[in-house]
Amino acid sequence: MAEKYGKRQTAMESGFITCHDCGNLVRAGTPPEVSHLGCPRCNALIHARKPHSLSRTWALIITSAVLFFPANLLPIMRVDFMGSQQYSTIMDGIFYFFHEKEYGIGVIIFTASILVPFFKIIGMTLILLSIQFNWKSWLRHKTAMFHFIEFIGRWSMLDIFVIALMATLVNFGSLTSTQAAPAASYFTAVVLCTMFAALTFDSRLLWDTDVSSP
């Protein structure tokens, strides 16, 4: 139960709203009403909780979960070598590194492009479900997990950057050239969706005892 951490008063219960953008504590009515007035300090719109946080985050997480399949199953890179074309998926690239005994790089690529998006989708689903069904245990760990998901989101772009660099540098005309393949677009979309999901999600919903509050 949330009371395990001590029954304390939240800002919303006491008629305050924290500005999302500058962290300013603003006095509103009790209960605070969503208004289109700006924060006195930074002019941003003020909401007690991020608007439509749950539905937006659900939509983005489901989108990224769907796009995760083409991103991993379709080829992400094409290598032309002496006239023969070879397509490779993300996993093929990782196997290549392990085959070449570059274990460190293999682990980095595997973490950034498979483990991180997968962990983000699973973790966000878990957090969202626990809000929907009002599971009030492990709240501190869930908050820490959300902060971690927020932090690692951008590192998934690593693989896209590597492909862009390879396509530029390994381009010796007809001899050898590297090109992107369709999964690059899907993979970028997965990363964007999960990053936006971390932005639209409001971790304060985890700590609210009543789910129906805005």
């Binding site: 939240t10 800002a11 305050f16 603003v26 006095r27 006195p40 300090r41 902060h147 304060r204």
Partner: peptide, 18 residues
């Protein structure tokens, strides 16, 4: 909206604790 009358208060951005 007015500025909070009690500038000694803050709220946690992650769990809204006053």
């Amino acid at each position: 909206y007015t500025m909070s009358e009690d500038p000694s208060l803050i709220a946690c951005h992650a769990c809204d604790l006053l």
